[in-house]
Design a binder for these strands. Structure first.
Length: 418
RNA sequence: GCGUCGGUGGUAGAGUGGUCAAUUACACUUGGCUGUAAACCAAGCGCCCUUGCGGCUACGUAGGUUCGAAUCCUACCCGGCGCA
């Protein structure tokens, strides 16, 4: 019996579907929004409040927990127990950090043949073979800030810790091993993330490397008998904004035998255009019934778009990062609660919102908390935002079940976009 | 009363003859945030306009020295401290 399985309750002709994602630690009603708990916490919100906010599961990060806390998590009995959470958990592979700390961070990226370089690898870090050091990436800004390097080669990734500049190395096998130790119900294969602005050649290279890493990640997982019974592994597809690459990637990953599929890439506007639409082309190429997760998809419009195509789960930092920095989601679009206009606004954060924050507090109060730099401000804002997105998914699910998805979507967007 | 130190933009506080409409921080105004190097980042922040290495008014008040003053001199006003 596979540990992770999607039960499709209803699927519309257009692709949108409502289902139940079964995991060893419980079911997830889909579509579902998955808050990000990078370092074993949804920033500012303890697990006891998760139910209250409609949180069914969350996703933590391999890279961050590897750098600090891995042993403590493992000794506690895994991510969920460590956080005193009795539901399903997910971990991301760390592939995004390679992108975020490497080529995606800053714009000055130059290539060189790293086989010529003599890296000061320490301790028991396995040195990659010279022939595997094909064109790699060197980030000048990172090198400047740490005096070190961020490198991708075919075997894996050598990187410097953003915390202390120390040198580390991830391979697909290493990422899987760490994720086994974290023990989440669902985890992701190690991949190479790209930016929408990357060229066709760069996307193709990253996609092919991701495929090779996916195969190795899957193999590393299947070889672990215990982990196979208790954890499901999702493969990640890449391809940027190029439909042919996306389809090829989906077919390749789709037939490898993963328990689920992740839409990879970065959908942030700061890296260029929006490649989400291209990524959604992947769904048509996947095996029927395979659960699909949208990695880093978290703007309401994007969740609606993804759900319309059949994406089952979405994770994103948007509710917590926006919330922490003063941005609130409302049914009439995003607002900046610290702005002067809310100083004497004694209405709820969002009219009609059923979240615990809106029931108990006013815009004027949250505005005041931000102005005075009280930590409760970012916390309340994050809570409201998370509820907004989990509730959006809940409404999407109900709309699908009631054959009213299109009406709901159009109605929501019309109001949201003002 | 005498002596002494000081009065700079919303606040604190730099500057002590030209490169000063004035460093910096905070405050204020606004924008951004999509698998979290993020309780963050960015822009603006005297007035005017045909927005320009533009004009005008500004560093307690009033004069003065100087080609040129927030910066030097004089008087006055105000404040801290010390002595009477």
């Amino acid at each position: 019996m596979q540990p992770v399985r999607l039960e499709i309750v209803k699927q519309l002709p257009g692709g949108a579907r409502a289902g139940v994602l079964h995991t060893p630690h419980g079911d997830i009603q889909t579509p579902a929004f998955v808050p990000v708990a990078t370092k074993a916490d949804i920033k500012g919100i303890e697990s006891a409040k998760f139910d209250w906010l409609g949180i069914q599961t969350y996703i933590s990060n391999t890279y961050h927990l590897y750098l600090s806390g891995l042993d403590a998590v493992e000794k506690a009995g895994g991510l969920a127990k460590f956080m005193n959470w009795n539901g399903p958990t997910i971990t991301d592979s760390g592939g995004f950090q390679v992108f975020s700390l490497g080529t995606g961070f800053g714009k000055k990226v130059s290539k060189f043949t790293s086989a010529e370089k003599n890296f000061p690898l320490q301790g028991d870090i396995p040195r990659p073979s010279a022939e595997s050091f094909s064109p790699a990436f060197y980030d000048e800004e990172l090198a400047t800030s740490h005096g070190k390097l961020a490198i991708v080669d075919d075997e894996g990734v050598t990187f410097t810790s953003h915390l202390d500049g120390s040198l580390h190395r991830f391979t697909p096998e290493r990422s899987v091993e760490i994720q086994h130790r974290l023990g989440a119900d669902i985890f992701f294969a190690f991949d190479q993330c790209t930016a929408p602005t990357d060229s066709y050649e760069e996307q193709k290279e990253a996609m092919e490397r991701t495929h090779a890493w996916a195969k190795r990640s899957l193999q590393a997982h299947r070889q672990n008998f215990e982990a196979n019974k208790t954890q499901g592994i999702y493969g990640i597809g890449q391809g940027g904004q190029f439909d042919d690459l996306r389809k090829e990637s989906a077919r390749t990953i789709g037939e490898m035998g993963f328990d689920g599929f992740g839409l990879g890439g970065s959908f942030s506007r700061k890296y260029g255009g929006n490649s989400l639409q291209s990524a959604l082309e992947m769904l048509k190429e996947l095996p029927a019934g395979m659960p699909v997760h949208g990695l880093g998809v978290g703007e309401p419009e994007d969740i609606l778009l993804g759900a319309a195509h059949g994406v089952d789960t979405f994770d994103c930092v948007t509710p917590t990062r926006n919330g922490r920095t003063g941005g609130l989601y409302t049914s009439e679009g995003k607002i900046q609660i610290p702005n002067a206009q809310y100083q004497y606004d004694y209405g709820p954060l969002d009219e009609g919102c059923a979240c615990p924050v809106c029931k108990n507090h006013t815009r004027a109060y949250v505005h005041h908390l931000f102005r005075t730099h009280e930590m409760l401000g970012p916390i309340l804002a994050s809570m409201h935002n998370i509820f907004f997105l989990t509730n959006l998914c809940k409404q999407i699910r109900e709309a699908i079940l009631n054959d009213q998805f299109d009406q709901f979507k159009d109605g929501f967007l019309e109001k949201y976009r003002k």
